[in-house]
Amino acid sequence: MPKRLSVIDVERCVGCQSCMFACTRRLGKGGLEGACLHVRSAGGIRKGFVVVVCRACPDPPCARVCPTDALEVRSGSGVRLRAERCIGCGNCVKACPFGAMFWDDENNKPLVCVYCGYCADYCPYEVLAHEEIAASVEATP
């Protein structure tokens, strides 16, 4: 089964953003550019955090609104970007209700999770998990 990233318990998130740095570091770089997930405060740190990840929808709206089929639906669920087809219209960004489709300003193309799970290895508090889709659908309401 294909895997995806799941937010297991956002209440345990401390806002360290280690996951975001990990996503950028996949490519051997420091910093935050290109990170395909996002952690921000829920309106001030006292209220805790919001963790935005691509939940690999079975029928992803981002793919449906793509005029050039640059976002392919992965077998099972989730999407894969065929960058050579992308015209940079940004429809996908608007279609995702979670804001999980990020943007690469330099190349004018979306940035989307590749479901590798590297970030989850750097979550110190088990907020994130990399799990098989069938199992995670069962586990999370």
């Binding site: 401390v14 806002g15 360290c16 953003q17 280690s18 740095f21 740190i45 006292r46 805790g48 750097y122 110190p124 508090y125």
Partner: peptide, 12 residues
């Protein structure tokens, strides 16, 4: 009630 971290610090 809550533990939080500085950016890029897993210690919180």
């Amino acid at each position: 009630g809550r533990r939080v971290a500085c950016a890029h610090c897993p210690v919180a």
